[in-house]
Each structure stands twice: as C-alpha cells, then as structure tokens.
Write a protein that binds this DNA or RNA. Sequence first.
DNA 1: CGTGCAATTGATCCATTTCAAGGGCCGTGG
DNA 2: CCACGGCCCTTGAAATGGATCAATTGCACG
Lengths: 256, 256
Amino acid sequence: MVMQDILARRLSNFAPLEGDEAALLARLSAERPRRVPARADIAREGDPTQVLRIILSGWACRYRTLEDGRRQILGILLPGDTCDLNNDVLEEMDHSIGSLTPLHYAELPHERLARWLDDKPRLARAFWWHMMTTISIQREWTLNLSRNAFERIGNLFCELFFRLRAVGLNQGNKIEFPVTQIEIGEATGLTPVHVNRTLQDMRSEGLIILKDRVLEIPDIQALERAILYSPAYLHLGRRRPRPPESALLGQGAGGG
Amino acid sequence: MVMQDILARRLSNFAPLEGDEAALLARLSAERPRRVPARADIAREGDPTQVLRIILSGWACRYRTLEDGRRQILGILLPGDTCDLNNDVLEEMDHSIGSLTPLHYAELPHERLARWLDDKPRLARAFWWHMMTTISIQREWTLNLSRNAFERIGNLFCELFFRLRAVGLNQGNKIEFPVTQIEIGEATGLTPVHVNRTLQDMRSEGLIILKDRVLEIPDIQALERAILYSPAYLHLGRRRPRPPESALLGQGAGGG
DNA sequence: CGTGCAATTGATCCATTTCAAGGGCCGTGG
DNA sequence: CCACGGCCCTTGAAATGGATCAATTGCACG
C-alpha cells in the first residue's frame, strides 16, 4: 500500500475522482507527513481547531475522559480518515484524538481546503460524503446502547472489516487488528475482563480468529447474522471490495 | 413563542443574524408548514432524501429498529432543529425520524438551501455550526456506553434543558417534557422498569421534579455535579440564557 | 533477568433485566 | 353516567449479564 494513495482511495469510495484530483491528494500526502508514536495524543479536548488532519497510515481514535477517569473511545480513525471537518466553525475540540498505533498524518490548512471545496466540486462532494458517513457511523455506535457485549464487539469487528476493505487494507478475510482488549472495552463500554470472555465465546462459535494482532473472520455473513449487523450505514453502496493489494499483513499496522 | 421565530432563534445561537436573514427564515417557516400527529413517522429508513425538514414546533426523534424489535432512539429533535443536512449526498435515510408529540415542520427544497448557502455566508456558517453541534451531541450520546442508568438519564435531562433554554423554550427551571418513561428507556438503552426506579432515586435526592409532562430541575448545578455533566459539547458558548417568554407551559408541547 | 503490559482465569457482587401484576388516568361508546 | 380498554406508571420478586476484586501466565523489551 502506497501511503500517498490512501486519501484518494478513501475519497473515491463515493465517486471516482478525475483529472488532477488524485494527484492533488497524493501531493498533499507527500508534503510533510507528521509522525506520531503509539498511544500519543494528536489533539486534545480544548485545543483550538485550526488545521484539518488526515490519517495516512496507522490507527487512531476519538475519545473523551470523564472526571473520574473513565475513558470512552468514541470512534476509530483509519487510514484515509480526517480527524476534523470542523471547517473552523467550532472554536475548540470537544474531544481528544489519540493514536492507537504509530501513525502518519498530513495537515491541510483551512485556506487550501476552502480553495479545493470551491474549485473541485467532485472533491467537495467526496468530503461531504465522508462527513455524512462519519455521522452515520457515530449514530451506529449509539445503537450499542441496546446491544449486549457479544453484539457490541461483533459490530466493531464488522465495521472495521468493511471500512478497511473499502480502502483495500484487508487481506481476504483478514485484517490487521492492533487494538488491545482494554481498548475494545473502552470502545464498547465493557470491562476488559468481560471483553476477554466474550471474545472466547466468539472464538468457540468459530466466528472469529483473533491472534497476534490479526483478526480473521472466516464467514462474515455468519458473523453478521449472529449480531444482527447490516452495513447500510457505511454508505459504501454496492461497490465491490477493492482488488487484493501486495502484502498488507506483517508490515506493521503503523506502516512506519 | 411565535412559531415563525424559532428557526432564527436556533441559528442565531452561533452568531447574530443580520439584514433580511431572519425574515427569510420566517417566510420559510410560514410558507406551508406540515402538520404531523404524535408518534408518526416523518421519514423512514430507506426513504430517499430529497428535502431538508425543519422542526417548527413539537418534539421528534431519530431512531433505528433492530430486526428483533428493539428500538433505539438516537437523538431528540427540538423546535429549530433540522432533520437532515444530508445535502443530497447520501441517497437514502439510514435511520427513521418519528414524532414524539404532534408537531409542525417546514420543508426546504435543496435548490433553495443551496442558494442560501451561496448567497448568505452568515446563514451558511450558522448551518455549519448546526451540523457540527449535531455531530457533537451524537458523540456525547455514545459516552452513555460508559455511564450508568442514573448518569444516562441525568445527561438526557441536562442536554434537553440547555438546548431548550438556548431557544427560549424554558420557563425558569422548568421545561415541557412530553416523553414517556418507555421512550426515555429507548433513548438510554434501559428498561422502562429501571428508568422508573432511577427516576424515583433522582426525585428522592431532590434533583428533579417530573410530573404531568413538566420537568423541573431545582438546582441545575447540583444535577450536573451528580452526573459529571459538562455542557461544552453543545457549543453554546458563554451566551446567556434567553430572556423569559410568555407562558410556554400549559399550551401543549406540540404547540399546535 | 527483572519490569511492565496484555491476556487469562476464578470467585463474588451488583446493576439492570425479566416476569408478573396492580393502579391511575383518560377517551370512547353503550 | 358508567363501564371498558388502553396506555403509562408503579411495585415486587427472581434471574442474569456484566462488573469488581484478585491473582497467574505469557511475552516483549531494556
């Protein structure tokens, strides 16, 4: 996977890009990518929102910490995702963004984004689509309130599998899964202990194979059925999965 | 409360409107408001998204129903809120919208919205702000995953109190609260039975008085403290509460 | 070779669910 | 005017999913 390629892949999920658009995105990605170690904050609650950050490689998450220390992960950011589409309307971050793995990101100054949105209607629409699906995913996460542990974790797995596949970051039924059980718990509102036991249930039902930071879903439809999953909210349309890439696994989730 | 006024009130929460903007909104609101009875669907999952709907009076909610019948309320829509800012990027609704009370809404065709967004930068920014706070509220709801019953319900109360106060739909410490305990349960992921018992706890601690569809919060700061609430995510800034209105209570939540 | 973090296991506790039933209120129809 | 049904709220008792507390293992890394 070429890092410069990821943004175009992500945005072309909505509609194919044309002309110099992909090149534009590639140039942005190459400019001066920032590097961040695992478990570091990229942005913090209360920070001013000036630039648009775009994940080029690695995983991150949105999160909030309550006064008593509880941490809730609000969403996962994958390569190609933007941290904020705030468009400088809101003055400060109301949540934090932290890396889960080592990662790279690009920074897009607001002026340049504004110019793109004016000059490149197709790009503008792609960004809109990106934002709308982000909201949609956020709504899906609140559905977890009426789901049990098994369904919550299964939904997380399915969401990440489909999102990664949409940008070609899968290898057949397998994806990199660099998230600890503690973090799964923080994302789903469950105790690490209970996450562990639920994972064992899923394994014993043959629904997942999760080992050495690789998640394999032998029969995705079986998993979907078991947790009442329907991927409509991802708005990936009837687009087929991306063609297989050169070796994705084993090169480290962070890619750097 | 003049119904035609509500949209301007809502959007001016971000920055004061100027010139003919308020009049524009008032005209839209007056044009041909649609009327909907309580507990009816305004839009359904799978529907095409063509128009922008704006609540003028009454309460509605976003919701999704799982295959086995569980219903999760994803958010509450109050007067001045828009049902969709989809901007026709997504083809179909991935959730439903239903009325909680009898209500009125206005329909804004996409062409007219597009013209406004082009011609009235202040309005455009106000719509942006509206969308960003909507996302922010959605994130706050997923925080409920790490909250217990008491905190979930308390957060719902605080959110609705502050949102209504921001558009002047409060009366001191009181707001209309036309939501059944069943619906509170659907919004928080709790059983009606447990909602009932939790409400009794909140009452016995003197934090709320909920009776006859009116919610009174005698000491909002005490409630905030009890549930670790912080209203930053509403992005209402340091704006003071709206001046008191003429009698709001007792004229029916639907306002029509 | 220790140190630290992730995964695992066991035992107990508790918040919330489930099941079941009764009471109050309100609109409707006889 | 009263009886009836329906909906919402309330209460009790029992069941359970998930939390809590505590300890062990395995592994990567300096």
